[in-house]
Amino acid sequence: MFLKLLFALNWIAAAVLLYFFGEGQIDGSISADNMALWLGMIFGVTAIIVGGHVLVAKGKRVAAGLLLSILALPVALYGLFILALIILQPNWH
Score class of each variant (00 low, 15 high):
34 N>Q: 08
88 L>C: 11
38 W>R: 02
23 E>A: 10
11 W>M: 14
60 K>R: 14
66 L>V: 15
58 K>E: 14
34 N>S: 07
90 P>V: 06
48 I>S: 01
58 K>L: 13
12 I>D: 11
53 H>G: 07
88 L>P: 03
50 V>W: 04
47 A>I: 02
2 F>T: 13
55 L>A: 00
44 G>I: 03
27 D>C: 03
61 R>F: 07
34 N>R: 04
40 G>I: 00
35 M>V: 09
39 L>P: 00
25 Q>M: 12
46 T>E: 08
6 L>I: 03
11 W>H: 13
81 F>W: 15
19 Y>P: 00
57 A>H: 06
6 L>M: 04
67 L>E: 00
46 T>A: 15
5 L>H: 10
22 G>L: 01
85 L>Q: 15
3 L>C: 03
73 L>S: 12
28 G>M: 05
18 L>T: 08
93 H>G: 14
90 P>G: 05
74 P>T: 12
3 L>G: 01
14 A>I: 08
73 L>R: 10
38 W>P: 00
7 F>M: 11
60 K>G: 02
54 V>S: 09
81 F>I: 07
78 Y>F: 13
32 A>N: 04
53 H>I: 15
2 F>C: 08
82 I>W: 05
38 W>I: 09
68 L>A: 07
36 A>I: 09
76 A>M: 14
90 P>I: 06
89 Q>N: 14
40 G>A: 08
57 A>W: 07
35 M>R: 09
20 F>N: 09
52 G>P: 00
7 F>P: 00
22 G>V: 01
72 A>S: 12
89 Q>R: 14
78 Y>D: 03
76 A>C: 12
93 H>A: 12
87 I>H: 06
4 K>F: 13
62 V>I: 14
54 V>C: 11
80 L>H: 10
